[in-house]
Computed example of a mutant assay.
Amino acid sequence: MTPPQVVVVMGVSGTGKTTVGRLLADELAVAYAEADSFHPPANIAKMSAGTPLDDADREPWLDAIAAWARERVEHAGAATSSPYGVRGVRGVVSCSALKRAYRDRLRGAGPGVFFLHLDGPPELITERLGGRQGHFMPRTLLDSQYADLQPLQADEAGVVLSVAEDPESIVRKAVTALERAAGADNGSGQATG
């Protein structure tokens, strides 16, 4: 298994992908990108109107994210390290990546794409979305996201972490999972926490 090089913080809307992604990137001292910034205006308008995106809408968005990840892998200098000793991670990006096909497209960036799936029950996520201000994604689309969500498979490098904990605890667990994956000589590197 290739050690993690780019971490994709994934999950349905409202799981804290941006918060955890930024904290993790800061912890690892690497670049961070928010997948929402890769959406073309037409996608944002569609979601703002309460219409779910289809696969065709997502293809150029996923390709742009994969290009960002590929750039991190191909043009990074020396491996970075954190106080926890994780080496080789060169970027963190938040992206829903709900379907296996979407994750396959992101893995096209090259070896070393690692998925950090933030998971939580619909009731908790609905409550969080109710308190969120200024985001184009309406709460009414949450059901469609859960319907699309396909869990990580055994051959996908990644970890599933509960969002019931505070973001700092999630980041600590993510770093531990990355260390484990970086040291793994074989196996999927997938774990739950």
Rank of each mutant, 00 (worst) to 15 (best):
T51V: 15
A25N: 00
D63V: 13
I65R: 11
S37V: 09
G88Y: 00
T51M: 12
A66P: 13
E34M: 13
P41F: 10
A64I: 08
V86N: 08
R100G: 09
E59N: 07
S94C: 06
A79L: 07
E123I: 01
P52K: 02
R58D: 09
R107C: 07
R107M: 03
T19A: 14
G108R: 02
S82M: 00
V89P: 13
P122I: 14
A56P: 02
D54H: 07
Y102S: 02
A29S: 04
S37W: 10
V30H: 04
A33G: 06
V73D: 04
V92T: 05
A101V: 15
E71N: 13
N43E: 00
R105F: 03
A29T: 04
A101R: 15
E27C: 08
P83L: 02
S37K: 12
A35R: 06
C95M: 03
R87I: 00
F115L: 12
T51Y: 11
G110M: 00
D63F: 02
A101I: 12
P83A: 09
N43V: 01
L53N: 02
A64E: 12
M47W: 09
A66F: 03
T51H: 15
A25E: 00
A31K: 13
L28T: 12
E71S: 13
T51N: 14
G85R: 02
W68E: 11
G21W: 04
D63A: 15
D63S: 15
D26K: 05
H117D: 15
W68H: 13
R90K: 11
P60D: 03
L53R: 01
R22E: 12
D57G: 07
V86S: 03
V86D: 02
F114Q: 14
G85V: 10
A79E: 12
R87H: 10
S94Q: 05
T51E: 15
V93R: 10
E74A: 15
R87L: 04
R107N: 08
G120L: 00
A64G: 11
L116I: 08
A56S: 12
G85A: 08
L98P: 15
T19G: 05
A69Q: 11
A67H: 11
H75T: 15
R90P: 09
T18Y: 06
